[in-house]
Amino acid sequence: MNIEKTVNGTTAVISLEGWLDTKTAPELGAAVSELPAEVKELTLDLAKTEYISSAGLRQIVAIHKKMDSFIVKNVSPELMEIFKMTGINNRLNMQ
């Protein structure tokens, strides 16, 4: 999984490419932790993410709790189905 980070003051964008699974989810967690402390708004771009598992979802919820503002965007229909299964799409800002 490739993680691409773009930090712009208090906002940042993280793009994920590949599989966000049990093995790679901690990498996402690590990438978020490494963001500058002033970043309070994060956008997660899943345009190139093919797969997400419950570990990935857990990570996303954790990020959501951490950030003042958290947007998940470009979710493919396949991934959206999984979000819907867990119901967390209702609580996340999905675009």
Binding site: S54, K65, M85, T86, I88
Partner: peptide, 16 residues
């Protein structure tokens, strides 16, 4: 929802 980060979604996903 806030506790989902500690797990609990996996089995429910499997069942679905």
């Amino acid at each position: 929802f806030e506790d989902y980060d500690t797990g609990g979604m996996g089995i429910s996903l499997v069942k679905q």
